[in-house]
Nucleic acid binder design. Structure first.
Lengths: 248, 248
DNA sequence: GAAATTTGTCTATTGATATAGACAACTATA
DNA sequence: TATAGTTGTCTATATCAATAGACAAATTTC
């Protein structure tokens, strides 16, 4: 994020226009390109990145379609104000309260739910037998009408029968767990990684293909240490950053 | 990470062979493809991902060059054992101790150092005046001879004059800070993001172009809360995951 | 030894990516 | 109004990416 000099790589599997679109996004995030101001003209950008003007235009076209830039013939190309959400992550992470102050409206939409046998990883995380029934929820986190996260969560089907209905109704994990007598819970562990978004995430998060997602894999436990939830969440790296606070 | 069904996207700016290489890496990390065992044959992979066999071959060729796979004519393609390092991150994150047990040898190599005026962000983080002199260190974290991180760190030049020499000698931030009377420090805040690796990171981390890096921006403080270090670290997403432990 | 399986190499074709140049359309400013 | 600066459109060309098919080379299995 710190405007270090770096150039563009060719024949990598990643097209130049996408690399340049990434760089422009970084530039906006790092303050190199101010919001609500004009981007340098296309010829200047082309020279700066060492590519043809048409290649820069492809990158800009992608970002215009993505809603990050607005191009006006004769005037210039402008940076729309769309701040990166800062998503706090720690022992007491909650979707809704975490984004307080940054957005006016947020909730979790239930995309689908199913019951399936637990795989090895999920069984271990939840402390149940491999093959035991688990409920799988596919959800999307929304803030001010924008998709900011996409998650897959698993619950022990025996312990949390019907939680999908509670989720659909309340739009909140915390509220749904209350119906099962859980008034508080902690994040036990979180593992972080990153990858290219797959087709499912692209559609659900309204991303351009090739976008990067931050991935968190987390286990939530009760205050007694009983595991209740296993979740994999994906965040669009271009719109969200994760913030760890000390002592959390 | 959780073997969810997902397909490949076309005309995205990211070539199919790179997307498939990413998927194979994920498959190895998630256990879909066992280490030291044979990958499914090329025709099977082509069918699974819905692409031509030659496209799969391009992906495999990239991973072979990257040292992840080994192809043997007539026998098959094998997964070399190269586990993803799990890098713990929390209030007491230390490079060396964090990787204890996962690697036998680790240290930080000093690539270069310079003195420069502090920018706005760095000045704010370190609590000094904008434009005041700061020492910038470019370092590479190495474990068992493999590059696992690439960092840029800034120190107040007045307070830590000569720290570059200490770093070059000791290969450790913790040891270097001890020479300045700092026996303990905490990670005050960490912000996480992800992006495509730039040319500098590609070279320093020995990555294939197009690779993704996890980025952490952190401020370290003394036990009194005095900020001492501002750092941006990059981790290759294909080789490292970040692990947050509760109560850290 | 023969057959089946698997990776390696070659040719050919199509569409996407990137470069190059020229000019039109629009805006702001002298 | 004229001029300079900027985005938009068009044509052309070369290279990369992806598909398709055929066959060679090496290994394992029967």
């Amino acid at each position: 994020m710190t405007g270090l000099a770096s150039s563009i790589e060719r024949r990598n599997g990643v097209s130049l226009w996408r690399q340049i679109a990434d760089r422009i996004l970084q530039g906006i995030a790092s303050g190199d390109f101010a919001e609500n101001a004009a981007l340098p003209p296309e010829v200047a950008l082309a020279e700066r990145y060492g590519v043809n003007r048409h290649t820069v235009r492809s990158a800009i076209a992608a970002l215009v379609q993505e809603g990050v830039l607005r191009a006006e013939q004769g005037r210039g190309t402008f940076v729309l104000s769309r701040k990166r959400l800062s998503y706090p992550i720690g022992a007491r992470t909650r979707f809704s309260t975490g984004l307080q102050g940054q957005t006016s409206e947020r909730h979790i939409a239930l995309l689908s739910s199913s019951t399936e046998p637990a795989g090895r990883r999920i069984a271990e995380a939840l402390g149940i037998a491999k093959g035991a029934a688990v409920i799988r929820l596919e959800t999307r986190g929304e803030a001010d009408g924008h998709a900011v996260s996409r998650a897959t969560t698993w619950f022990d089907a025996k312990r949390f029968a019907g939680i999908e209905a509670a989720m659909a109704e309340t739009g909140s994990i915390t509220a749904s767990l209350k119906r099962f007598g859980i008034n508080d819970y902690l994040r036990h562990s979180t593992v972080l990684s990153a990858r290219h978004a797959d087709a499912d995430d692209l559609a659900a998060l309204d991303l351009q293909p090739g976008a990067i997602v931050l991935v968190t894999v987390a286990v939530n436990v009760t205050l007694d240490g009983e595991p209740i939830q296993f979740a994999e969440s994906r965040f669009p790296a271009e719109r969200v950053e994760l913030k760890l606070s000390a002592g959390d």
